[in-house]
Design a protein around this nucleic acid. Sequence first.
DNA 1: TATTGTTATACTCTATAACTATA
DNA 2: TATAGTTATAGAGTATAACAATA
Lengths: 162, 162
Amino acid sequence: MTSQEHGNGTAPRSRPRGTAFLLAQVGAHAAARFAERVGVLGVAPSDVGLLRMISTRPGRSQQSLAEELGVVPSRVVTLVDGLERKGLVERRRNPRDRRNYALHLTEEGSRVMAGMREVGAAHEDDICAALDEPQREQLAALLEAVAVQQGLTEGVHPGYRR
Amino acid sequence: MTSQEHGNGTAPRSRPRGTAFLLAQVGAHAAARFAERVGVLGVAPSDVGLLRMISTRPGRSQQSLAEELGVVPSRVVTLVDGLERKGLVERRRNPRDRRNYALHLTEEGSRVMAGMREVGAAHEDDICAALDEPQREQLAALLEAVAVQQGLTEGVHPGYRR
DNA sequence: TATTGTTATACTCTATAACTATA
DNA sequence: TATAGTTATAGAGTATAACAATA
């Protein structure tokens, strides 16, 4: 379980960059390219997760978003402020409990969400351009295995995490 | 947890997010874990690349580091300031051309570099814990192909990039 | 004039903690 | 008292641009 085991005859190809470094490198690159793309739609990467979560389960409270994302509530305030200012999200008061808001996408917000799906597909094709379809599935499966073993929450980018 | 009569999440683990998202997610996670580990050695992830580059080619100028990393020279000043304050790096004046510095690791800097290699190996084992050796090589090969096609510079984390 | 490095400044992102309104 | 959300503030990280020293 400890470090490098050079035994077993085969150590022909020294790995110049470790797998973990490659993961971080390629991952950061993918994130940066995605940021460029969604930037065209007028949103930041941190907005994207929020929009998707609100779209998936409309009426959510800011608190529930903060919990799932692993961020402090005040940050959700800032993010929702931005989305509201851009007219993508609406805060609706709940008459039963006037402490919390029910968050909903506006029509414009839904349009942007649709745009993001297109952007996501183009992004996917761009990043995986070096791989054919079986290779892409192989890569996805390997990453999925790592993600599960590392305890990553499905669909939540660690960039939110404290 | 608030009311949630929504179709409760039996997430089909087929392909929830795209491969590109998985890359960004797992990559950011790997980077965060690495930051934790090197933090124990008293350095930040941004220090690591610098130390390695100076270690590989001692006597480099700050300018050359800035170019290779794709950052503005003033940022290298800040980074080297930090490393010098920690006693890991030394700025030596070049008598031939007194405009630039020749950067060298101190003895302590070399010790930290050695520590980073151990940390790197442990990190690698941690991140790839879900995979056996053939799978790790497969993953590395796929990532390598993506990295090359995307034009990523070997060993340079895009986190430096503008 | 060009190059290397530095300083001064400002901007973005995010967390902490105190606060308001409601329950 | 407890909870949802907000505001005020501060810190880290990084870029831009003006600057000094040297060539």
